[in-house]
Amino acid sequence: MSIKRSDIESIAHLARLALSEPEIPRYIDELSRILGLVEQLTRVDTSAVTPMAHPLPGQRQRLRADAVTETDQHQLYQRNAPQVSTGLYLVPRVIE
């Protein structure tokens, strides 16, 4: 599995990471090495195995009662916000 420059660029875009020009060959190299390590997984036959998404077998989702337990804390929560106005989080204009 060889990683191409275009792969790196499209993954970086999906992940919303900006890469500088010198970073691209480095990522090509590192990702290729990591995926080379991962290639070992093809050594074992997994055709009859159910994928395991969760480490504990037999657990099931619990359900919460439909109750409102929260109060308005937006002033506290917005203390960490980079930019707010009239209770809204601000971002550069979104064009649709």
């Binding site: 990471l17 990522y27 990702l31 991962v38």
Partner: peptide, 27 residues
Amino acid sequence: RRIMVGTYVLSAGYYDAYYLRAQRVRA
């Protein structure tokens, strides 16, 4: 680096080959 790898293994066309296979080996 890990975000890049993770994005790659979940992306269209690679999900089965990497993520699903890894979850099978995990089993």
